[in-house]
Nucleic acid binder design. Structure first.
Length: 437
RNA sequence: GUGACCUUGGUGUAAUGGCAACACAACAGUUUGUGGUACUGUUAUCAGGGGUUCGAAUCCCCUAGGUCACCCCA
């Protein structure tokens, strides 16, 4: 402790402290449940990959790859990169493990940290969590709708209000190219009225102009954007119409947004974004179809559709909307012990309860009963088991109900049974993913 | 990557060149046998470094971090 320099967390990363955990569990559980209900299975992919993977998938000239990657050389001089997104890794895994031999479509979900070297801001971090869905090996428009429905259900389960799904189609890769040229031409005509940034974008990537928020560019775009859908070829249009029809049938609400484009190069056909009405600038998640990606990465020709959501952003909205997020019950039983003779017995009691799959907390180092009960109250533990000299002598324990303050003295033999019964009466034992429903 | 504002105990704030204050939290005690109340006590070389000054939390410079806008995105 002689060094006075405090080590701070690096820029743009953050600790998620115990107080925050109820939000994180809530979002993760609801995501997992929504995904599993729709037939998605979990995949865990590496946190870093060959740099080349992201260059080839996300696109060498996107901002993500050109400016925001955490790339480094390992000791064998391989260039590696902390993943800036999840789809590339999933596609790589699909190819590497020959998943085309599994029943198609292959439906996968993931959850984990992503890394982008960007200037931190509200809802934007250098390390942030994404939850994602990927569906590979099916081109039918119904799977687009199905996946979007899963995303909608996820937000509904969280209890979120005023969530909008914006949707658009970029068409086949050829149509996408055509549309870009058409857009370029249209913009060229209005060039003098565009803002300085957009004049630059016009050269680099005309699609990006569609994202511009300045008044004048907006006006121009509103005029010309409806004609963009028309620039799609018949196949693309037909496919998109089908997707929308299925969504109608599933009663998923959406909003057509011809200006919607996405920052990753690999998207074709359907693209969508999830936003909260209260803050439409910051999207909560998004996704789209990536029919060429797997092949581009050296795999079989495999159509695919995916989604990625920003966990921190979802939690921000949860807090903003002051939604009821269930409190975590950290433990089922708190053990209060009085004096040195009670301690060995407390240890025994803890062991017995743990065998019954209960979560136990205690402050075995503390002496006074007030302190321990105060702690139990603070932790919202439903039950307390009190052990003093008297109980050691009488071979029993006191079970105290923390809500109504009632107490019952039970003999050691019945302790576990009665504890379980009391918890069950309170409806507190939540089934884990291993238990049958 | 550009610009603006900001950083004081664990948290939220005060002091704007002259002894770092308050609230909450935490810990200890009042109280070795019954909880969210009450009272008492303890807890900061003012983000880090350098400079100006008799004297700096306060003024200046550098570094790091935060917030906001742009860029972009989850």
């Amino acid at each position: 402790m002689t060094d006075k320099k405090k080590i701070q967390a690096p820029r743009g990363v953050h600790d998620i402290l115990p107080d925050e955990q109820k939000y994180w569990f809530w979002v993760e559980n609801n995501f997992r449940e929504a995904a599993q209900a729709a037939g998605f299975e979990r995949i865990i992919i590496p946190t870093f990959e060959a740099t080349e993977l992201f260059k080839r998938s996300v696109g060498e000239f996107t901002d993500i790859v050109s400016k925001e990657m955490y790339s480094f050389k390992d000791k064998s001089a391989n260039s590696l990169t902390l993943r800036p997104e999840g789809t590339a890794g999933v596609a790589r895994a699909y190819i590497e493990h020959g998943m085309q031999t599994m029943p198609q479509p292959v439906q996968l979900y993931y959850w984990g940290p992503m890394f982008r070297y960007d200037r931190p801001q509200a809802g934007r971090y250098r390390e942030f969590y994404q939850c994602g869905l990927e569906l590979l090996g099916d081109y039918d428009p119904i799977v687009d709708a199905m996946l979007i429905q899963t995303v909608a259900k996820f937000h509904k389960k969280l209890g979120m209000q005023d969530i909008v799904i914006k949707i658009n189609s970029l068409g086949t890769e050829r149509a996408k190219g055509k549309m870009m040229t058409a857009l370029g031409k249209l913009l060229e005509r209005n060039k003098k009225d565009l803002c300085a940034d957009c004049k630059l974008r016009l050269k680099k990537n005309p699609l990006r102009v569609l994202d511009c928020k300045t008044g004048k560019c907006r006006e121009i775009l509103d005029k010309i954007s409806p004609s963009l859908i028309d620039s799609l070829d018949d196949e693309s249009k037909k496919r998109f119409t089908k997707v929308l029809e299925y969504l109608d049938e599933m009663r998923v609400e959406y909003e057509l947004d011809p200006k919607l484009v996405r920052g990753l190069d690999y998207y074709t056909h359907t693209v969508f974004e999830v936003v909260a009405r209260s803050n439409e600038e910051l999207s909560l998640g998004g996704g789209g179809r990536y029919d060429t990606l797997v092949k581009q990465l050296g795999g079989p020709d495999t159509p695919a559709f995916g989604y990625a959501g920003g966990v921190e952003r979802v939690i921000d909205i949860l807090k903003q909307q002051a939604l009821a997020v269930p409190d975590l019950i950290q433990s089922d039983v708190f053990i209060v012990q009085l004096g040195d003779r009670a301690k060995p017995k407390a240890i025994e009691v803890v062991e017995k309860l743990e065998l019954a799959n209960l979560r136990i907390s205690s402050a075995l180092g503390r002496g006074s009963i007030q302190t321990q009960l105060r702690l139990a109250a603070k932790l919202h533990t439903p039950l307390t088991i009190i052990i003093g000299d008297q109980e050691v002598h009488d071979k029993n324990v006191i079970i105290r109900d923390m809500e109504d303050r009632s107490q019952e003295t039970v003999i050691d033999r019945d302790m576990v049974k009665i504890t379980l019964k009391k918890l069950e009466e309170k409806g507190l034992r939540v089934p884990t993913i291993y238990e049958s429903r």
